[in-house]
Structures are given as C-alpha cells and as structure tokens.
Nucleic acid binder design. Structure first.
Length: 202
DNA sequence: TGCCAGGCCCTCTTTAGGGCCTT
C-alpha cells in the first residue's frame, strides 16, 4: 500500500468547540505494508477533562497541565503528516477534530480521509461489531497496549488497515491497494461491495 | 439555567427512527 498517515485523537468530548478540544494525538506513517515512522504527544488546549473521560482515556487534567500547547503540537503534527493521505477509525470523528484544530492555526486539510470502520463494515460484515478493539481481537492482531490512548489506538488502526489491504489483495487479486481505492470502496453500498470489487479484479 | 454530536446505515424507509462508532 502507498504511504498513508494513520491518526487518532483523544479528546475531552465528542464535538469540537471552545470547551471541547483534542487532548492527545498520534500519527503513524505506513508504507509498503509497514509502520515506518510515528508521532505522539499530549496537548494542552486549556480545557477541562470530565472525570468519566479521564477514566476512559487515562489522560488527567494534571497530565495536561505539563503538556505542550495544542497549537505547538498541531503545528508539529501537521508538518509530520504533510500532504500524506489520512486514515482513521470512524474517520468522521477524527476528521472534525483535525479540521477544527488545523483551522485554529489558519490551515486547511488538503487530503482525504479513509475510514477503517467503514471499510471493515464492508469487508468484515461477520465481525461481532466494528469497534476498533473488537476488530483487533477478532482478527488476532497484536495487542498494542492501553486502549483509548492515542498511540495504542493508532497502532491498532494501522494494523487493521494493513490487514484490510492484504485481505483485498488476497480475495480480489488487486495488485495495489491505494488510498484512493479505499476512499471509493468505503462509499460503495455495503450490499454491492463484492460485485464492485470483483469488477475491479477483472 | 439548561442545553449537550453527527455521519453512516439499516429497515417495520423515503413525509422516519434508531443503532453504531468515535471521546
């Protein structure tokens, strides 16, 4: 698979805004079937983490106090990603935080997001559910550490993306799985995905 | 004070409702 940037945000809520911001980001660059580089940092956006989210992520208000400013971290993350195509699990979530945080820097995203959740729903409809952790266990992928921390979740999403790319190559004889193909695939109606893929492999 | 997301997808659908998934 061509070079892609897999990302994951931890946040203090579900929808970005003045009181809801990213608290941690991780990015893993994947190229030729391998993870080749990574970036991870907590970030302090001056927001409060409610206790239920602190329990979920393990990221505390005390940890954020000593974390670098969000603007600094996002500058670094944006530079690290550059124009590399993006992928995340349930990308609609990470996309809105990526766009919001970049917008505060006066920057705009130029590349598309592929979504490992939409892809897994199409390629692995038999899975118990399509949560990241469930898919990881269901497929026997490596344990990456504490779930709901950005780097561990990004590694899970990267392993899942590599599995899905390999699945496409093995089951449909695709010579190369590109980010563009993944973006088209995730938009296909689930009921028609097999026929669509079989058409590609001819 | 009280409010508290949103895109995707299925179905007992399309003049809608509700579950999934992310924190």
């Amino acid at each position: 698979m061509e070079r892609i940037a897999v990302i994951d945000f931890e946040t203090n809520g579900l929808s970005p805004g003045s009181s809801c911001r990213a608290t941690e980001i991780a990015v893993i660059l994947v190229e030729n079937g391998k993870m080749v580089d990574r970036y991870q940092s907590l970030m302090n956006a001056g927001v409060w983490i409610p206790s239920d989210i602190e329990r979920l992520t393990g990221i505390s208000n005390r940890m954020l106090k000593s974390a670098p400013p969000a603007s600094e971290v996002m500058q670094e993350a944006a530079r690290f990603v550059g124009n590399t195509p993006l992928l995340a699990h349930n990308a609609s979530f990470d996309k809105k935080f990526w766009d919001y945080e970049l917008g505060l820097l006066g920057q705009r995203r130029t590349q598309d997001f592929a979504c490992s959740m939409l892809l897994a729903r199409r390629l692995l409809p038999q899975a118990p559910n399509h949560k990241l952790g469930t898919l990881n266990r269901y497929l026997g992928l490596p344990d990456t550490g504490r779930a709901h921390r950005a780097l561990a979740d990004t590694e899970m999403a990267a392993n899942l993306a590599l599995y899905l790319a390999s699945h496409l190559q093995q089951h449909y004889g695709l010579a190369e799985v590109t980010h563009g193909l993944l973006c088209k695939l995730q938009k296909q109606p689930a009921a028609k995905v097999k026929v669509w893929l079989q058409g590609l492999s001819v």
